[in-house]
Design a protein around this nucleic acid. Structure first.
Lengths: 345, 345
DNA sequence: TTGTAGGCGTTATCAT
DNA sequence: ATGATAACGCCTACAA
C-alpha cells in the first residue's frame, strides 16, 4: 500500500488540463472535446493510471460492491452458483466479496460489518445452513438493501428470489419412476425445516397422489444433504419398510450414499431398486451406476441472480414472483430407462 | 447507497467531544480517558455507527482487502481452499474478494481492477487453469505486492508458496501399492505442463525406481483432472499396455472416471486392479469401491496461506522455503488393504 | 488527555 | 467545453 500511486492530478497535468475534465472522460459524463479526450486517454495510458476506488466511492457514494453470503462454500452447488454470480457481477462492473454468516460471540452477525462498513450495494444470499439460521439472517439486513436469495425468502420489498421450481421438478422425477411402473417409491429428503426439502417433498407427494398411490410417511427418510445421511437413510428405510422398488433422493450426494448402502445390502441398481437423484453434479455421471437425476442450472441461477440484484440496485422494480430457471431430467442408468435428457416444460 | 449514514461526527456530537477522540477509541490509538471512552462507546452503540471503509482507507492508505484469484471455483479443491482462506482472512479483519483471472478482450487482465483500483493489499493465487496461463499471471502483478500461491510460484520476493509435498505424497501412495505386491502400476497424471502433475509423477517414478521397478512411459496416461479424462485414460492404458495390476491417479475425480472404465471393461477393483487416488474429496468415501487416496488438507492450506499472506503484509519476512502441510494416506477399499489412515511424516 | 488543521483522491455543483 | 471550489468521512500530525 505504500508505493506511490499516480492520481488523477498527474493525468491532468500531463494532459495539460484540469482534473475535472479527466474525471469527465473517465466517467463519460458531460461533453468533452474530441481532441481533449484523446489527450487525456493518452495520458492515462502512458501513466498506467487507475482511479482509486476508495476515493471514488467516498465522493460518489457508489461502491459497486456486492456481498455474497453463504455457508459451506465447498459444496458444489453453492460454489457453482457463486461462480455464475461472480462472473455476471464482474461483467457489470461489480466486485463480489464473500462472507460466511456466522455470528460473533457477542451475537453480532459478522457480515453486518461487511455490509455497512464496506457499503455493499446489494446482497446475494446462498444459504444452506443445516439449521434454520437462514431465516434469521434477514433480521440483520437493512430493509432498503437489495437482496437476492436462493431458497427461502422473506416476503418484503427489495428481496428477489431466484432458483428453480423445486416441487415441479421433484414431481417430474417421481413421475418418471411412476411411468417406469414403480409404485413403492421411497424418498430421502433434506432437513425438514428447509424450504427446498419441503418443496421437493411436496412434488413427490403430489406425483404419487395423482397416480393414485397413497403417499406413506414410512417411505420417507430425512437426511442432511450429505452422502453419509443418504447411506443411513437407506439403511433405515430398508429396516423400517423394505419392499420399495424405487428411490428418489433430494440431492445427488445423498443418492451416492444411498447407492452404496443399497450395494452393501445386496440390492442391485436399477434391477432391484431404481434410483433418481437431484442436482446433476458433475460426478453424478460417473456414479455406479451413472445417476439419473434432475439437472439444476446452478451457474445460471447465479448469473441470473446477480443480474436481478443489479437491476434492483438500478432501481428497477422487483419481479412480482420468484424467478425460476428451467430444470431437466437427465436419464442415465440408475433408473433402468434409456438414457436421454428431458426438458421440463 | 443513498440512505443517510451516521458519521463519526454524529458520534462525536452525541458524546460531546471532538471527532478526533472518537477516532482514537475506534482505532485504539493514543490514550483516552476511561470515562470519555465509555461515553464514546455508548454513543457508537446508540447510533449504531459503523465507520465508512472507503473514507478510512482513503485516509489511512490501508484497505484490508485481499484478492483471491482462481479458475474453476466450482472444483471442490479450490472451493475448499477458498473457504479456509476466507475464514482466516475474516478472523484477521481482512475482506476477501474473488476474481477469475481472465483477460478482457483488450488483453488487460481483469483482476488488475482488484489490485490497482481497489488496492488489494495481498493476493492469494489458487490457479488451476488447464493451460499454462497461470505462469503468466505474475507478469501483471506488481513486484512489491505480497502474494501467496498454491502450486507454481515464481521465484521472487514477496511470493510465498503453500501447499503439500506433492512428490513425497505421490511416492507414499505408490509405495503403498508396491508394498501390496504390485509391480505393474499404471499412472494417470494431470496436464503435463502443470507443476502438481510433474511433482506427483516424479514421486511415482521415484517410488518405482527405489523398488527396483523400471518406470515405463507406456504405463502413464495424461488426463486433465476431470472424471471424463480419467475414464479415457484407462481405456487408453488398457488398449496400449494391458496387464497393469494397480493404478495411481493424480486426483480423485480422474480416479472416479477410471473406476467406471475399469468396471465397464469387466475388471474388478481391487481384485483385478488396485486403485489409489489423490485429494480425498468428501465423495471419495462413497465411490464404488470406497477410494484409497491421499488426503490433501485443502482447508488448512487455505487458512495457512491467508495467514502467511497477512504476515507478509505486516512486513514479516517470507519463509525461505515453500510451506508444506501434512498429507496422509487414507486406506479404504479400492486398494485391497485393510482400512486405516496413515500420516505421512 | 483532547482539539485543530490539513489532506487522502475523487466527484458534484456551479461558474465561466 | 472546461475550470474552481467544496464536499465525501476519516486519519495523521501537531498543538494545546
Amino acid at each position: 500500500m505504500n508505493r506511490k500511486k499516480t492520481t488523477i492530478e498527474d493525468v491532468a497535468a500531463r494532459a495539460g488540463i484540469s482534473r475535472q475534465t479527466v474525471s469527465r472522460v473517465l466517467n463519460d459524463r458531460g461533453v468533452v472535446a474530441r481532441e481533449t479526450r484523446a489527450r487525456v486517454l493518452a495520458a492515462i495510458k502512458a501513466l498506467d493510471y487507475r482511479p482509486n476506488a476508495s476515493a471514488r466511492s467516498l465522493a460518489s457514494r457508489r461502491t459497486y460492491l456486492l456481498g455474497i453470503l453463504t455457508a459451506d462454500l465447498s459444496d458444489y452447488t453453492h460454489a457453482r452458483i457463486l461462480e455464475g454470480a461472480e462472473t455476471a457481477a464482474r461483467e457489470h462492473g461489480y466486485l463480489m466479496f464473500i462472507s460466511g454468516a456466522e455470528r460473533s460471540l457477542t451475537g453480532e452477525p459478522l457480515h453486518s460489518r461487511l455490509l455497512s462498513q464496506h457499503q455493499a450495494e446489494g446482497l446475494f444470499i446462498i444459504y444452506h445452513g443445516a439449521d434454520c439460521d437462514s431465516y434469521l439472517i434477514f433480521d440483520d439486513i437493512p430493509r432498503d438493501l437489495p437482496v437476492v436469495t436462493i431458497g427461502y425468502a422473506q416476503d418484503r420489498e427489495n428481496v428477489v428470489k431466484v432458483g428453480i421450481a423445486n416441487s415441479q421438478a421433484a414431481r417430474w422425477a417421481t413421475e418418471h419412476l411412476l411411468r417406469l411402473g414403480h409404485r413403492r417409491i421411497a424418498h430421502i429428503t433434506g432437513p425438514q425445516e428447509m424450504y427446498e426439502s419441503q418443496e421437493r417433498r411436496l412434488g413427490y407427494v403430489e406425483a404419487l397422489r395423482q397416480a393414485g398411490v397413497v403417499p406413506e410417511d414410512c417411505w420417507v427418510a430425512v437426511g442432511d444433504w450429505s452422502s453419509a445421511s443418504g447411506y443411513r437413510a437407506v439403511l433405515e428405510l430398508l429396516d423400517r419398510s423394505p419392499g420399495f422398488t424405487a428411490l428418489f433422493a433430494q440431492n445427488d450426494r445423498m443418492a451416492l450414499g444411498a447407492l452404496q448402502a443399497l450395494r452393501k445390502s445386496g440390492l442391485q441398481v436399477p434391477q432391484d431398486v431404481a434410483v433418481v437423484g437431484f442436482d446433476d453434479i458433475p460426478l453424478a455421471a460417473y456414479f455406479a451406476p451413472p445417476l439419473t437425476t434432475v439437472h439444476h442450472p446452478f451457474y445460471e441461477v447465479g448469473s441470473r441472480g446477480a443480474g436481478l440484484l443489479i437491476d434492483l440496485i438500478d432501481g428497477l422494480p422487483a419481479p412480482s414472483a420468484p424467478v425460476h430457471l428451467e430444470t431437466e431430467l437427465v436419464i442415465r442408468c440408475s433408473c433402468g430407462a434409456r438414457s436421454k435428457s428431458v426438458p421440463m416444460h
